[in-house]
Simulated scan of single mutants.
Amino acid sequence: MSVTVVKDKGVTMITVVSDVKSMLPPLCQILKALCYSPRCCSVRPGMLQTGVTAALGTVQILVGLFNLGLGPGRTSQHPRDFADLGVAYWLGGVFLVTGLVTVLAGQFPFVCLVGFTVFMNLLASLSSTIGIVMYSMDLGEVISDDYCWDVEDKDSCIYMEFFYKRMLKAMDITMLILTVLLLSVSISLSVLAIRALCRKTEKSFRDVEPELTEVLLTKPEP
């Protein structure tokens, strides 16, 4: 399948030639043609600031590793709590993948990879918002839970409970701050990548428009 886009004087015409031998439906053929087009898979040097994407992507990777590393230290107190839902694991996975994609997009600025970076950073922003809520809820439960209500030796239990709650509160507060930081990083990267895509699109239209205008205004000889 080939997809041709012609734009002139505010009018855009899209011509699609389908492959009758393909088993894929027309919509899938269009997506395949767009993804494998030279413009989509071509490298655009300077499209993203490599230093900025490397620094912010590294922050995302580190926050993801912190989530994955601190996840095994939690025990579930009741069904569907923070540990039972495995929030630290799926948050860490999303943050880690997003950071890796961001770093790769800065080093190899393919148009399709930059677009995927936008999607992953938007997903990371949504996950960060959910993570902030979940960490806040877990912090409230840690403060209010009573672990020594049915223990005979309450003095020893209260002593251990104090250190256990202190450790969990420190973990929750730390991860809460890091998740807020990652939310701002993901939003910033989304904006940067979207601006880079918009600049690339505008530049491509400016470069192609004179040629398209010349083709449209040229009449074939009889």
Rank of each mutant, 00 (worst) to 15 (best):
M1A: 05
S2D: 15
S2M: 13
V3G: 01
T4M: 08
V6Q: 10
K7W: 10
D8Q: 12
G10I: 01
T12G: 06
T12P: 03
I14A: 01
V16T: 08
D19Y: 00
D19E: 00
V20D: 07
P26H: 08
L27R: 14
Q29A: 02
L31C: 12
Y36V: 09
S37D: 03
S37H: 11
C40V: 05
S42F: 12
V43Y: 03
P45R: 00
P45V: 04
P45L: 07
G51T: 06
V52A: 02
T58K: 08
V59N: 05
Q60F: 04
L62I: 04
L62P: 02
V63R: 12
V63F: 07
F66R: 13
F66E: 05
F66C: 11
N67A: 10
L68I: 04
G69R: 05
G69M: 15
G71F: 11
P72A: 01
H78Y: 07
H78C: 15
H78E: 06
P79L: 08
D81A: 03
D84T: 08
V87L: 03
A88Q: 04
W90T: 12
L91E: 11
G92L: 08
L96N: 01
L96G: 00
G99S: 07
G99Y: 07
G99V: 00
L100V: 11
T102D: 11
Q107A: 15
L113H: 12
M120I: 02
L126Y: 01
S127F: 14
T129P: 01
V133T: 01
S136C: 13
S136E: 02
L139E: 15
G140D: 09
V142F: 14
V142K: 08
V142H: 06
V142L: 14
D146A: 07
Y147T: 00
C148Y: 04
D150P: 03
D150C: 15
D155W: 07
C157A: 03
Y159Q: 14
M160N: 14
E161A: 00
F162W: 12
F162V: 10
F163V: 15
F163I: 11
K169Y: 14
A170H: 13
L176D: 13
L178E: 09
L178N: 00
T179C: 00
L181A: 11
L183H: 12
V185W: 04
S186V: 01
I187G: 11
V191C: 07
L192G: 09
I194G: 06
I194A: 08
R195K: 10
R195A: 06
A196V: 02
L197N: 02
T201S: 02
K203F: 06
F205Q: 15
V208Y: 12
E209H: 15
T213E: 08
E214N: 13
V215C: 10
L216F: 12
T218W: 08
E221M: 12
E221P: 13
